[in-house]
């Protein structure tokens, strides 16, 4: 049942973050709650459900951003796997750790997008590192601990269980 609801909640999340980005930052800064959701899934959700979450959120983000299908799907699935790998070695409870990790993942996402564009089209988007991707990574890092707490509380991604133990 929760797999059927995933696309619905994923779509709502992308709509919400797009609206927030346009209303608050007038489209100048991306508010990527979906990225934090994917990292959260890597830490606390069962493997299959977490991977599906990353895939679905990536797909909807591709649609909303106008990016080629698969660009954010690949980035999100990769970030989910990295988060999963890290979750086996680190207990992510401290806000400072979440901030740094989310910021690094956001930066990695930006670098992936730039690298794929460079490889596929020969288009150099690396000059956007300072004006787009770095502010985006900093903002995502600040958003991380707050979003983690929110996901814990609403338990949207879980089946009603405590998500902190669900994936372990």
């Amino acid at each position: 049942m929760s797999y059927l609801l995933l696309p619905f909640f994923g779509f709502l999340l992308i709509v919400f973050q797009t609206a927030l980005s346009e209303l608050v930052f007038f489209g100048k800064l991306a508010v990527e709650i979906s990225l934090v959701a994917v990292i959260y899934a890597g830490f606390y959700l069962p493997f299959m459900k977490g991977a599906a979450t990353g895939f679905i959120l990536g797909f909807f983000l591709d649609c909303f951003m106008g990016a080629p299908s698969g660009l954010f799907v690949f980035s999100y699935v990769l970030i989910f796997l990295i988060s999963r790998f890290v979750s086996r070695r680190v207990y992510a409870e401290r806000a400072s750790f979440i901030m740094i990790f989310v910021g690094l993942c956001a930066l990695l996402e930006g670098l992936l997008v730039m690298a794929i564009y460079k490889l596929a089209y020969g288009v150099d988007k690396f000059h956007h590192l300072w004006d787009v991707f770095l502010p985006h990574a900093l903002f995502a890092g600040l958003l991380g601990p707050w979003a983690f707490k929110l996901f814990h509380k609403i338990g949207v991604l879980s089946d009603g269980r405590n998500t902190r133990t669900a994936g372990r």
Binding site: F47, F55, S69, G70, L71, F74
Partner: peptide, 21 residues
């Protein structure tokens, strides 16, 4: 199981990406 599921998602994402790029 985990390796198979991870490979499935990564390969699907890459196929989507290569097809659309």
């Amino acid at each position: 199981r985990i390796a198979i599921i991870a490979s499935f998602f990564i390969i699907t994402a890459l196929l989507m990406l290569f097809f659309n790029l």
